[in-house]
Write a protein that binds this DNA or RNA. Structure first.
Length: 730
DNA sequence: GACATCTGAATTTTT
DNA sequence: TTCAGATGTC
């Protein structure tokens, strides 16, 4: 296959200039993924670079996966040796190997937002600070900002009394993470930078390994990431970055598109290649997007052109309120599918804030139409999933105190907040982990010489019972894979009984846990499956889940839409206060970022673009009139079919989506359950522990059969056929 | 210590 | 509207 076939001259240039730094400024839809993959393939096939010497960094795991998939087509087996991943995943892997140099065991835990909050809350308590005055979220955002700028707790210079306090929290927070053998997201980057700074020989190793570095979405890198790249590429200078400043939408997370300027200064020999040819959208959509983005002052003017025809005008639509907005969208999708030959999966609905999805979802449900909601469902954020993962984490990394405090009393075992706090404080005083503290407690209680400890007599027994449970899990986990460990955890903690409170919610939660077990079982035949599983699970993002989904419309935020494309795009909530968001209209910089966000959304569309706003909108309970977004005024009239509205004919029969007996929409695709239950009510069964019993009910849950059995001597139990060794008896 | 009920407070985007 | 935290009861 000719790697250059079908590429335009600019793309070709980007693919083939082999040595030295390169800056590619790529507009939306200009085929930059193609350029990146073909360049990697070109380096390997034509230049003779060894695949093992190439590092490609992407923004999401999904992008990494896609790139790998494409490269396996282009390169075959050779692509296995490539390193392709997000900054975070790549750093996490490096730190697994080298983290001991910084004092982190390879089993370190990656803390997510909730874990971070938990740590901060504990510190606030410890320092006797009011969590109203120092809201954990606010404190964390200051800390995160500092980390993104590579400012450690020691270098943090407070500019106010408040910041002085935060500086002390920051210091304590880093200590706490270290004690827990844990890192937060930002630490993955900063610790890698620190590692390379402090150990030049290690840096040297990675420099000679990653001789060619390619970076996607470079405009969304932060200072730490930029330093990382500079460290790596300082000598060989083979740094290839692809950027679009107009699509920089993560400045609130520390991203700084001025890195593009820095790159130009630090690598002055780099040629700049412009990709302005758009292969995605109609000229009308591009013209509208150009009109919007050209209002931004801080940018290099670009002209996006396409060879496609003008296409249809944009549709600007005013709905009465958010309900009708949703109904309008659904009805329009139905029309496009019914009359214009689009598939449901061709359509995407985009919005500024997750809360906006609700009304749209309701409209889909009312219409009996399936849809896929990206994010918000947040599988890995669910309580039961986090509990299960926390168990796995303390098994893998017994120092992990945030996970421990999460599950120490889940299910309830008599270890309430008082006891937990006393235990943690006692461990803290002695400078040891809770794991060790519990061992000391056992010695004190069972050893010959009694030792003083602050734990109440009543708490000792459940504490020691918990330690025994924990120890047995740690011990047995050594010879088991993740899925088996998880099963063991579920059995030993009787977690199912805890979740199954008879409500539908309880059943759903258990289903989720089974789904997690399902995911875990995919890691079965792997070296260190527990560690691999935990790491990958810590780094998944919502967009990553947007895989081979059923053919349904997709609902997602504008942020998550970056990098995607759809034949039909609806952007809803085009109102002042929402887009631009009220929290981001303070400074011109923020306003420009809001505009970029809108631009990103518009340029996702291939054929049809709908811009929808509502006359009034309810925000938490109260409904109020709204004003249409200033961004709409930037679009020339001749590009839209004029503005349409469907009210005040409300309530109009034409608009109402008729409720249909709706199949319950599933937000997450599940594998098809096994066919029929093997057990039926009335069956007599025998269980190794509970003895003989009678089946009350049996149903398929996820991919296992859940059997409810009444045991005369042990009461009624819900059992999983896969776990419990149930046998039918005559 | 566990659970139910009440209150009031806060709402952006997420690797 | 939703949710976390506080309060009250057993």
């Amino acid at each position: 296959m000719d790697l250059l076939e079908g590429l335009n001259p600019q793309q070709r240039q980007a693919v083939t200039c082999a040595e030295g730094p390169v800056l590619v400024l790529a507009g939306p839809g200009s085929g930059k993924t193609r350029v990146l993959t073909h360049r990697v393939a070109y380096l390997v096939r034509e230049v003779g670079v060894r695949a093992g010497n190439i590092l490609a960094v992407t923004f999401t795991n999904k992008a990494a996966r896609e790139m790998k998939a494409r490269l396996s087509h282009l390169l075959g087996a050779e692509c296995e040796a490539l390193t392709i991943g997000t900054f975070h995943a790549t750093c996490a892997r490096i730190l697994r190997r080298e983290g001991t140099l910084l004092g982190f065991a390879p089993s370190y835990t990656i803390y997510d937002d909730d874990d971070q909050q938990a740590v901060i809350k504990r510190i606030l308590k410890e320092m006797n600070l009011d969590d109203k005055a120092y809201r954990p979220g606010a404190v964390l955002s200051v800390i995160s900002k500092a980390k993104n700028d590579l400012i450690g707790p020691d270098e943090f210079v407070p500019k106010s009394y408040r910041e002085g306090v935060i500086a002390r929290i920051y210091l304590r927070y880093q200590q706490a993470l270290k004690e827990s053998n844990a890192m937060d997201f930002d630490d993955l980057l900063t610790n890698t930078v620190a590692l390379w700074q402090q150990f030049p020989d290690v840096l040297e190793r990675y420099r000679s390994r990653y001789r060619y570095v390619l970076v996607d979405e470079f405009q969304d890198t932060n200072a730490a990431q930029y330093v990382l790249l500079k460290q790596l590429a300082a000598q060989h200078r083979n740094l290839f970055v692809v950027a679009d400043e107009d699509q920089s939408i993560y400045s609130w997370r520390g991203a700084d598109f001025r890195n593009i300027q820095r790159f130009r200064e630090d690598f002055p020999e780099a040629p700049t290649i412009l990709l302005e040819q758009n292969y995605r959208s109609t000229q009308t959509i591009l013209d509208a997007a150009n009109a919007v983005i050209s209002r931004n002052t801080r940018r290099t003017p670009k002209r996006l052109v396409t060879e496609r025809d003008r296409g249809t005008p944009l549709v600007v639509h005013e709905a009465y309120d958010e309900q009708e907005e949703g109904q309008y969208v659904v009805r329009e999708i139905q029309r496009l599918v019914g009359e214009e030959g689009f598939r449901p999966g061709d359509c995407a609905v985009m919005y500024r804030t997750n809360a906006q999805s609700r009304a749209v979802e309701e409209a889909f449900v009312r219409a009996g139409m399936r849809y896929k909601l990206v994010g918000a469902t947040r599988f890995y954020q669910r309580r039961e999933i986090k509990d299960a993962l926390a168990y796995l984490r303390i098994v893998y990394n017994p120092a992990d105190s945030a996970s421990l405090s999460r599950v120490i009393n889940v299910p309830p075992r008599g270890l309430g907040p008082q006891t937990a706090e006393a235990l943690f404080a006692w461990a803290g005083e002695q400078g040891i982990s809770v794991w060790e503290a519990l061992h000391r407690l056992r010695q004190a209680e069972q050893g010959d010489e009694p030792m003083a400890h602050p734990l109440s007599a009543r708490a000792v027994k459940p504490l020691l019972a918990f330690l025994a449970l924990w120890e047995s899990l740690v011990e047995e986990s050594k010879s088991l894979d993740v899925a088996s460990i998880l099963q063991l955890v579920l059995e030993r903690t009787d977690y199912q009984a805890y979740l199954n409170d008879g409500t539908e919610e309880g059943r759903d939660r258990w289903d989720n846990v089974m789904e997690l077990l399902n995911v875990a079982s995919q890691y079965a035949n792997m070296e260190n499956s527990l560690g691999v599983f935990l790491q990958e699970v810590s780094l998944v993002a919502d967009v990553d889940e947007l895989g081979d989904q059923p053919d349904t419309p997709v609902l997602l935020t504008l942020h998550m839409a970056k990098g995607l494309e759809f034949p039909v795009v609806f952007i809803i909530g085009l109102e002042e206060g929402i887009l631009p968001h009220s929290r981001s209209s303070g400074s011109p910089e923020e306003l420009e970022e809001e505009r970029r966000l809108f631009y990103v959304g518009m340029t996702r569309a291939k054929d049809h673009l709908y811009l929808v706003h509502a006359f009034r909108r309810a925000s938490y309970g109260r409904s109020a009139p709204s004003q249409k977004s200033r961004f709409l005024r930037d679009i020339p009239h001749h590009l839209t079919g004029g503005e349409r509205r469907t009210w005040p004919t409300r309530p109009s029969a034409a608009l109402r989506v008729e409720p249909v007996a709706a199949p319950k929409p599933r937000e997450d695709a599940r594998p098809a359950p096994p066919s029929a239950p093997t057990f039926a009510p009335g069956d007599r069964v025998v269980h190794p522990k509970f003895g003989v019993g009678t089946v009350v009910e049996s149903r398929i849950v996820s991919d296992d059969e859940q059997v409810t059995v009444a045991f005369p001597s042990n009461g009624t139990k819900k059992l999983l056929a896969r776990l419990a060794k149930l046998e039918k008896v005559r």
